[in-house]
Design a protein around this nucleic acid. Structure first.
Lengths: 322, 322
DNA sequence: TTGTAGGCGTTATCAT
DNA sequence: ATGATAACGCCTACAA
């Protein structure tokens, strides 16, 4: 019995006699043999792993996207590793290096900065990479995104429809592309309605978290009543939930004293103190599509880079409807 | 210029003359060279990666645990891969196989079934493994957990203190160890207060999700008023939020018509329709401690298996205090 | 059916 | 300062 035979037991069991095979198998379990994936991969040249480098693993929006990716990965019999960059460029780049070195089949990423050079660099070096939740301007990469400018528009148009003429945009930092787009959309809708520019107030937060939303609520409450907005459009649901919570806790009412629109329509939005009006993105589909694109890029020689854009949709609930 | 020199540029740059070194480095970036981690690892025998196999990536409780793990992993300069078993034993086992084969430094896992043989098997085969959020009965493994029986007790004691004498336990399936423990704790507190056994009603759900919580709310509402509990203790916050939402949506009031206690104290608990009383677990610390234990097991030859148990703490809010 | 040999990319040792 | 070489574990073509 030789080395090659053992390998055959693993890879072409039919070529091995029953007796030899069972003998080998017994030995394996007894000795606790575990295939060395590094060696296999070194020989094979590629792995059966996808990775999703996510901006914030604790934001339910991204875990839903991840679930969509998993769905598609399962169909292609690939495993998914989730890597949390936690909004840090440094961490993000470290993960990208590691994943390339591991020769994963493909990388999905919601990047801190979609303009960063090293993203294109990854693809140039041969690892398929798809941008999730951001459009890529230059067309050197695949991307799957939702039209955030449009999302910002529909949110603010809804508030205008409800009669609000003094509105706050709550979110930040603006260096986050998603935030900037939503803000731009908000401004467009505002301008088109012919409302005075200074009646759309920007309340910048330093992160898109519940805690920052609460803080914004305090700042809002501190404004003189005359200048105080009667409605707020938040850059995501976490901020909106924080704002909602702070507003109610301080004795003001939603939507009577302050109407609130969120963004993402995470599951908790409808379970909030006051069910939250929000701009829904097709989260799972975003993930599924992105995964299909990496797989295509990894396996189809005729792959062409594709930019998919989904359309967001306003879901109106009590927080604006009273 | 030979192969060995190139390797030296990468690993001991000081042994290479400046001219050669820069020449090699230039070539590398031009050609888009990427180190092959498989080959490195094959030679080195081990990797700089930890993995956390999590039960449900979309439950904020687990993402907070993961954040704790990341914190500790960073300190040891290890990367963390998050793998979502999504409550499936099959997926869980597939991930475990893959990770062992990849020779990761260590595995952290919140298992579907902490009694499963293959968990011990992993450790026996040489990959350090720590159980997170479950105690391990036999002491062959490290584990970090919270005393869920105690958690169940304090939750129900709190409700008894508030004067409730007919309480529902909402959660399931009971095959989930955490659920069973919390239910046991609830029963103990109930018995010790001398209350009639059948006044502690069990409302079983098929999963610990918001949707299941809503469903339980409907069943609760359907009970005849005489027998209907005046309070509910939910096996986790997701269920509690669903129940809360359904209760309010159907026009009943919390806590007047129904008091609710959740479990985990996730961030959304305090932002809920009615701020949720919940049993807090030290989530980040759970993760941090677990990571420290795997690292110890991986690096310290004198490592001894340790079972760490944390104590939960009741956080009383409006959903029980009115 | 079973055994043998070469090579995947990297690193460390040893010799130049 | 640089170059040659063996070894890590696995897989596969080929030989016996």
């Amino acid at each position: 019995m030789s080395l090659g035979t053992v390998s055959n037991v693993l890879n072409r069991p039919d070529r091995v006699s029953d007796r030899t095979r069972s003998k080998v198998e017994r030995a394996m379990t007894e000795l606790g043999f575990v295939r060395n994936e590094s060696a296999r991969q070194l020989r094979a040249g590629q792995s059966r792993v996808l990775a999703y480098v996510v901006l914030d693993a604790s934001n339910p929006f991204f875990t839903d996207v991840a679930q969509g990716i998993e769905l598609a990965a399962d169909l292609s019999e690939l495993s998914l590793f989730i890597c949390n960059s936690n909004n840090s460029s440094t961490r993000e780049e470290a993960y990208l290096d590691l994943l390339q070195q591991q020769r994963v089949q493909g990388i999905l990423i919601t990047p801190v900065d979609p303009g960063a050079d090293f993203l294109n660099e990854v693809a140039r070096r041969g690892t398929p990479l798809v941008i999730v939740d951001r459009v890529q301007k230059d067309l050197a990469l695949c991307s799957v995104a939702v039209d955030d400018v449009l999302g910002g528009r529909v949110a603010v148009e809804h508030l205008i429809d409800r009669g609000h003429s003094r509105v706050a945009f709550v979110g930040g930092p603006l260096s986050i592309g998603q935030v900037e787009d939503r803000w731009r959309g908000a401004q467009q809708a505002w301008a088109e309605a012919g409302l005075p520019q200074d009646a759309l107030v920007q309340l910048t937060t330093s992160a898109l978290t519940v805690a920052e939303g609460r803080g914004a609520g305090e700042r809002l409450a501190g404004m003189p009543a005359r200048r105080r907005p009667t409605a707020a459009f938040c850059a995501n649901d976490l901020v909106a939930l924080g704002l909602l919570q702070q507003t109610i806790a301080s004795g003001r009412r939603v939507p009577d004293d302050l109407a609130i629109v969120g963004y993402d329509d995470i599951e908790f939005a409808s379970a909030a103190a006051v069910p939250l009006t929000s701009v829904r993105q097709p989260r799972q589909e975003l993930g599924r599509t992105a995964a299909e694109l990496v797989v295509d890029e990894a396996t189809n020689p005729d792959h062409t880079h594709t930019q998919v854009t989904f359309t967001p949709e306003l879901v109106a609930r009590t927080s604006t409807l009273g």
